[in-house]
Computed example of a mutant assay.
Amino acid sequence: MLEIAKEAASVAGAFLKERFLEQLVPDEELHNDVKLPEDKESERRIIEIIHGHFPTHTIFSEEVGMVSRDEEYLWIVDPLDGTNNYFIGYPYFSVSIALQHRGELVLGVVYNPVAGQMFWAEKGKGAYLNGKRISVNKRTDKARAVGTYIRGRNSITKEQELTFTNPFVMETKRVLRNVGPALDWCLLANGWIEYIVMQRSGIMDVAAGIVIAEEAGATITDWQGVPYQHEAFESEHMRSLVASNGLLHETIRVMIHE
């Protein structure tokens, strides 16, 4: 199943890369989002490959929603995570594919076709980037820590976002707002950054990244410090999480003020 997920991500990613530098015409452009035909075509190719090998599996994908079949296996697909970045020619986007088996996340694949970065992990088997095993870093100095901030669409105002992120801007080296959350978790997994703060965001965008980060040794909790437990996927379920290299976890967590 991991190999099929990687194949689907590769095929969809190749299509997205081919279209990337074109002047894209959106189906719909909203205040905080954009809908592109490339989203739908990437999704079509992924579903075709997964159902070609596993016709009885259920798939949830961003554009078509739930394609319900046997619910023992549920594929959670974001065919273009970072659509706004893709639309403006900013090469921070990915194809994200996760698999849930009987309510438990068991594998994740995140592919950035422009950078040629294929991240993947299976539960209990470690995390990898292009075949090389990866792990979180060991940085302990808050002042040198780099993190990312993830928030759900329309979940808080921009004014609330500025107030919330101010401590991280002031007290750590840098906090990024990449608007491509699947890849953010992979940055943590590969030791490129030290922390992630996620506020009221859907699990669909980050399910694959969470598997990869966990297998790379990341510590993931809710804002109160309770260890992360995956709950059976629901498309509207929003979560607020903090993740880190472990050594900085409590330092970062106590900086969170709702």
Rank of each mutant, 00 (worst) to 15 (best):
M1C: 10
E3V: 07
I4A: 05
S10D: 14
S10T: 14
L16F: 05
K17T: 00
K17R: 13
E18T: 10
R19L: 10
E22F: 08
E22I: 09
Q23Y: 03
Q23H: 09
V25P: 02
V25T: 15
H31D: 15
H31E: 14
K35Q: 13
E38V: 02
D39W: 00
R44Q: 13
R45E: 00
E48Y: 11
I50R: 14
H51I: 07
H51K: 11
T56P: 10
F60E: 06
V64A: 15
G65R: 06
G65C: 00
S68I: 14
E71N: 01
I76M: 08
L80G: 07
L80K: 04
N84K: 15
N84A: 14
F87P: 04
Y90A: 09
S94L: 05
V95N: 02
V95W: 03
L99T: 05
R102I: 08
G103S: 08
L105Q: 03
V106I: 04
L107G: 07
L107Y: 10
V114N: 07
Q117E: 15
F119K: 11
A121P: 02
A121N: 01
K125V: 12
A127D: 02
K132T: 10
N137M: 03
K138R: 15
K142E: 14
A143N: 06
R144E: 14
A145N: 01
V146D: 04
Y149L: 06
R153I: 12
N154P: 02
I156L: 08
F164A: 11
V169M: 01
M170V: 15
E171K: 15
R174H: 12
R174I: 03
N178W: 11
P181T: 10
L183T: 08
D184W: 00
W185D: 04
C186H: 06
A189R: 10
N190T: 11
N190D: 12
W192R: 12
Y195V: 10
I196T: 09
M198E: 05
R200S: 13
I203M: 04
I220N: 05
I220T: 11
T221Y: 00
W223S: 10
P227T: 06
P227G: 01
H230L: 02
E231K: 14
R239Q: 09
S240G: 06
V242R: 13
G246L: 12
E250W: 08
R253A: 01
H257G: 15
E258I: 15
E258R: 10
